[in-house]
Computed example of a mutant assay.
Amino acid sequence: MSPTNRRVCQAILYEIGAVAMVTPILSVAFDAEVSTTLPLSVLMATIALVWNYIFNALFERWEKNQIAKGRSWRRRLVHGAGFEGGLVLVLVPLTAYWLDITLLQALLAEIGLLATFFVYAIIFTWAFDKIFGLPISAQDRSA
């Protein structure tokens, strides 16, 4: 699979899972109707989808220049932290506005979602790599 097709496939599958998880979590946490949280989840997933593509392109560019190839758990942790950290900057104000809550409440909600998605991102990427193989940037080409 080409790097571009791989990134698009990975991002779309990741966000489908994200919407399925976030919608009920937000509904329960904020006692809100699914009719309110589903559109928010889809908007958040769309933002994350764009960020996912950009972040993975940047990460793979960095990864390609690393001496150690492959994806250790340490590298996967760095990947997950970088991806989720970038989302906080956009999603906290969006969540506060959409649910009509304070930035602090939105930040606390986002921290809860980040903890969930940090684990989800690492497991999802591991499973995706197992099914589709490592990207070219992580393969040892010296053999």
Rank of each mutant, 00 (worst) to 15 (best):
T36W: 00
A57I: 03
L107M: 15
S35W: 01
L43A: 06
S72F: 03
A11C: 13
I12Y: 02
V50E: 03
Q139K: 12
V90F: 15
L38E: 05
R61H: 14
E110A: 11
F83E: 07
A29E: 01
L58S: 10
L89R: 00
L89K: 00
I101M: 04
T4D: 10
A96Q: 08
R7A: 07
H79I: 01
N52Q: 14
G112T: 11
V119D: 04
I12T: 10
L107Q: 12
N5H: 06
V119A: 13
L77S: 10
A138L: 10
A68H: 03
E84H: 06
A127E: 00
F124H: 12
L114D: 11
I54D: 09
A29G: 02
V19R: 06
Q105L: 13
D100T: 12
I16G: 14
T23G: 01
A106L: 10
A106I: 04
R71Q: 02
V28Y: 05
V19D: 01
D31P: 00
Y53T: 13
R74G: 14
W126R: 10
A48I: 11
L87D: 01
R76P: 02
Q66S: 07
L113N: 08
R141T: 13
V90H: 07
K130C: 06
A138K: 05
I131Q: 01
M21I: 14
E84N: 11
L43F: 01
T46D: 01
W126H: 06
F55G: 04
A96H: 06
Y120A: 13
I131K: 05
A127H: 00
A96R: 09
A48G: 15
I67G: 13
G70P: 02
A96E: 08
V92P: 04
W98A: 14
E84M: 11
W126M: 05
V34G: 00
A48V: 13
F124T: 11
Y97F: 12
N52T: 14
